[in-house]
Design a protein around this nucleic acid. Structure first.
Lengths: 193, 193
DNA sequence: ATGATAATAGAACAATCGTTCTGTGTCAAT
DNA sequence: ATTGACACAGAACGATTGTTCTATTATCAT
C-alpha cells in the first residue's frame, strides 16, 4: 500500500476516533475509505497493529494504542519543530492519562486568589487534586482553615505543621486546632484561548 | 434497580472504559456484572442513556457521553468539597478535549528556561502549541530568533512587532529580519508527582 | 400473608461482526 | 512478454451483536 494512502486512511481513522470515541467497524471503514471489500480493511488493520497504532485486547476487539493519543509530544523547545513529513514518528500521549493517576479520586478546582502566584499558580488556573494522597512536606494542598478552603504549601518541620502561601502578601498559617486536608495538588492546567 | 447497585455497575463500566478505551458489549457486561441475561444489561443501558452517561451514535452504537469523562470538575475553591454521596452529580470533562481544539495541529513542548516565569510558566512545565492560529498582540508564541526557538509574548504595536519575555532578566527582542512563528501557546500543563 | 413491582433468567431473532477464501485488475521489475 | 507482488472486489463462514419476547425470582409496602 502506498505510504500516502496509508496516512490518509490513518488520519481518517483518527478523526473518526476523536469524533466518536470508538474505533469504526470494518464495514464502517469501508465507507470511510470508499472501499467495497472488507478484505482490504483487514490487511490495513493488520498493518496498523504492526505499527502499533491500534491493538487487539484479550477479547480480540480493536482498541486504540499509544500512538493514537491526541497530543503530539515534542522534546524541549531547543529542538525546534519537526517537518510535517516526520510528524508520524512523534510520540503521542493523552493529557488525561498524563496528569491523572487516580481518575476516581481526582478533582479539578478553579483558582480565584493569588496566594500561590510565586509557585506559578495564577488566578483562573485549574488545579488537579488527588484526595487519596497523604501530603508530605513541600507539597501543595487544599486545606480548610477557619471554615474556608485555601490552597497552600504543606510544610512539616519536626512535627510542627504550617501552611505557607507562595506570595509575600499573605501570612504563614499555623493551624491551632485540627487541620483538614482535602487533597494534594498533583497538577496545574491553564487555558489561554 | 437499587441506586447502590446502579453506581457499582457504573463504576465497573467506567473502569472498563478507562482500561480498554472502549465500551463493553452486552455480553461482556454480563460477565463484569455477574449476570446471565442480556435483558438486564439492556435495561441498565437504557437508564445510562437516560441519565446521559452513554449515548448512541448515528449507527446505533454505544459511545461514552459527557458524564463519562475522567475528571470531576468542582467550582471555585471557596465552594469546598462535596460529600462523596453527591459526587455523582458533578460535571466531568476530559483534559484532552478541554485543552485541545485542533488535535492534529497541537503539540506539547517542555519548557527549559525561566524567561516566562512571571507569566506563570516555569521550567519543567509543558505548553500546548497550536500551529494553525495566527498570533495577535499579547499572545504567547513559540518563535525562532537567531536560529534558536524561544517562547515569548507576541507584541504588535502600530505594525511594529517585538517579542517580550516575562522575566526582567531578559531583554525585549526586536526582530530585524523575518520572524518565524511556529505556533501560539494555547495552554500550560504542570505535573507535580 | 398477599399482591404489586422490579430484576433477572433464558431463549429466540435478524443483523452485523471479524475472518478467510477465491478471483480480478494493476503496476513494476525482469 | 512474463512474472510476481500487491490492492481490491466479492462471497462465504461461524460467532457475536443488540433487541425483544416470555417466564421466573426477588423485593417491598400494605
Amino acid at each position: 500500500m502506498n505510504q500516502t494512502v496509508f496516512n490518509q486512511r490513518l488520519q481518517k481513522l483518527i478523526k473518526f476516533y476523536i469524533d466518536k470515541k470508538r474505533l469504526p467497524s470494518y464495514s464502517e471503514m469501508c465507507e470511510i475509505f470508499n472501499l467495497k471489500s472488507k478484505n482490504t480493511i483487514y490487511s490495513f488493520c493488520q498493518k496498523l497493529i504492526e505499527k502499533d497504532y491500534i491493538r487487539k485486547d484479550e477479547q480480540g476487539k480493536l482498541i486504540p494504542s499509544d500512538k493514537l493519543k491526541p497530543v503530539k509530544l515534542l522534546g524541549y523547545i531547543q529542538a525546534g519543530f519537526p517537518n510535517t513529513t516526520e510528524e508520524e514518528t512523534l510520540d503521542t500521549l493523552s493529557l488525561d492519562e498524563f496528569l491523572i493517576k487516580n481518575p476516581q479520586a481526582t478533582f479539578m478546582l478553579k483558582i480565584s486568589g493569588d496566594s500561590m502566584q510565586e509557585a506559578g499558580i495564577l488566578p483562573g488556573d485549574y488545579v488537579l487534586v488527588d484526595r487519596t494522597i497523604t501530603p508530605t512536606s513541600g507539597m501543595i494542598v487544599i486545606a480548610q482553615v477557619d471554615n474556608k478552603w485555601t490552597i497552600k504549601y504543606f510544610i512539616k518541620d519536626r512535627n510542627k505543621i504550617c501552611l505557607k502561601p507562595a506570595n509575600k502578601k499573605y501570612p504563614v498559617i499555623y493551624p491551632k486546632e485540627e487541620l483538614i486536608i482535602a487533597g494534594v495538588v498533583t497538577g496545574v492546567v491553564r487555558k489561554y484561548l
